[in-house]
């Protein structure tokens, strides 16, 4: 069966649509379709992918208007004609490849690692955690940093320095970890006017997240905590 791929391309100067018709078998993914085009029809087509198993987060693109991982989206599930575009809210470098540098910087900015007073890498000790403590944050560890959430966020669309759902979710993930002692530091980091206050619960991030980790929920939780901590700090 032949399927029509309409791809929004960008060559550094101009943006244009190009159509390819490719033979599709049942089970074939959008990513395989893109590889087919690159190998057989147009070697200049550029896109990003690595793991092909929905774990590296490289391949998020807009498919028929919705951001998805190309490697876990089957072509025939979408239909027999599809439009593939780069993610919104990111600068396009070439074709489907967007600039993730700022996105990763924001991630780094919230200190997404355990912060402990007794860090001792010479003689590491085991950190015990009960299943309940694990489940307090486990779902949020599943984020693959694909940027789908950021690409649909209305605040990220108009304010470049907004931390965005993924970074704030990462901050929440570590704050909710019983082994971590850096909560205060991270609350201060997400509490600026480029932080949690920019969220207006459009909740589109939770709708599009391919890992269904509900970033909007993490943002509300950490925002509430930040507000309470601030109010307490006034009376201290």
């Amino acid at each position: 069966m032949d399927v029509e791929f309409r791809i929004r391309r960008f060559d550094g100067e101009k943006s244009y649509w190009q159509t390819f018709n490719i033979p599709v078998k049942r089970g074939m993914t959008v990513l395989e379709g893109l590889y087919y085009i690159k190998e057989n029809l147009d070697g200049s087509l550029t896109f990003r992918a690595s793991c092909r198993m929905a774990i590296c987060g490289s391949c998020a693109v807009k498919i028929n208007g919705k951001p998805r991982l190309a490697c876990e989206t089957q072509i025939l599930e979408i239909g027999n004609s599809l439009e593939v575009e780069p993610l919104d809210n990111f600068k396009v470098i070439k074709d489907l490849v967007t600039d993730f540098e700022g996105f990763f910087k924001k991630h780094e900015a919230v200190k997404p690692y355990l912060i402990r007073k007794d860090d001792n890498y010479e003689e590491p000790v085991e950190l015990i955690q009960s299943p309940k403590e694990l489940h307090a944050y486990y779902d949020f560890t599943l984020c693959v940093k694909c940027g789908a959430c950021y690409s649909v966020c209305p605040a990220a669309a108009t304010r470049d320095d907004y931390l965005g759902p993924a970074a704030i979710t990462a901050a929440y993930r570590f704050n909710a970890d019983s082994r971590d002692e850096g909560e205060k530091i991270r609350l201060a980091l997400v509490c600026g006017d480029n932080g949690v206050w920019r969220c207006h619960f459009a909740a589109e991030c939770s709708e599009v997240c391919p890992k269904q980790i509900d970033p909007a929920k993490a943002v509300q939780k950490i925002r509430f905590k930040s507000a309470i901590e601030t109010i307490k700090s006034i009376f201290r």
């Binding site: 028929n64 208007g65 209305p154 619960f201 459009a202 909740a203 589109e204 709708e207």
Partner: peptide, 12 residues
């Protein structure tokens, strides 16, 4: 709101 869910429309 193209391609967005009802939640985004509610926000708009």
């Amino acid at each position: 709101v193209k391609g967005k869910s009802l939640f985004s429309i509610a926000f708009s």
